Amino acid sequence: MGPVEIQTVLGDITSAHVDAIVNAANSTLLGGGGVDGAIHAAAGPALLAECRELRRTVLPAGLPVGDAVATGPGRLPCRWVIHTVGPNRHAGQTDRALLARCFTSPLDVAAKIGAANVAFPAVSAGVYGWDVHEVARVALAATRAWDGAHPGHGVDVVQFVLFSAGALAAFQDTASPRSA
């Protein structure tokens, strides 16, 4: 098995045909704005019901920043939704290592559940205030480091699905060999 293939695409993560999509969730897991709201809206009530059950049982205080948990997809075309909570720069959460965990923790979950291809948004680059170029650097470095540290993990493709041309350019510039 070779290194994980990293792809950057412009698109809507809710329509990604992959095994798992990563939701840039808030700690409540009960939906919100941005990517989280779009995923919950597209997935329908089954996703919200499963998230409520997680809160009732194993995550009564919510999902901590940097952690990840998988649910079913509801009406989405993937097999799983992996929820992660990004650090909120506006709330003083500026640790790049915590942001990196928002990419490595979902990859740990993906490997555990057997997701060979995973789609990520630019976690924390929206309302949580992180610069998209910084998110791109952290996300790509974390993904590559995770790949190198977990031989035989079973994740073949990591796709960064970006909603805007600016975010796509930031990830493409960071992913190019000249910036590696």
Rank of each mutant, 00 (worst) to 15 (best):
T71W: 05
L99K: 10
S176V: 01
C78Y: 05
H40N: 10
C102R: 05
A149W: 06
A119K: 07
E50Y: 02
D19C: 06
A165R: 11
R52I: 00
A111F: 10
G152N: 11
D95N: 12
R178K: 12
V135Q: 11
W130V: 02
F103T: 07
C51H: 05
K112N: 12
E134S: 08
R178N: 13
I82V: 11
A116F: 00
P60E: 07
P60L: 01
S179T: 11
V4S: 09
A141E: 15
L63G: 07
T104V: 03
P64E: 08
R89I: 00
R79C: 03
P64C: 01
D19E: 13
V135Y: 12
A141L: 08
P64T: 02
V157T: 14
P106Y: 01
N26Q: 10
L48W: 08
P73Y: 10
T94W: 03
G92N: 12
T174A: 15
Q172K: 14
A167L: 02
V161K: 04
T57C: 01
A141T: 15
D131I: 00
A49V: 00
G114Q: 11
G44I: 01
A16L: 03
W130S: 04
V138E: 13
S176H: 13
C51I: 00
Q93I: 00
V35T: 13
P3Q: 07
V22E: 04
G44M: 05
H90F: 12
G11S: 08
F160Y: 14
A61G: 10
A41R: 15
A24W: 01
T28Y: 07
L54M: 04
Y128T: 01
V4C: 12
S27P: 10
S27M: 01
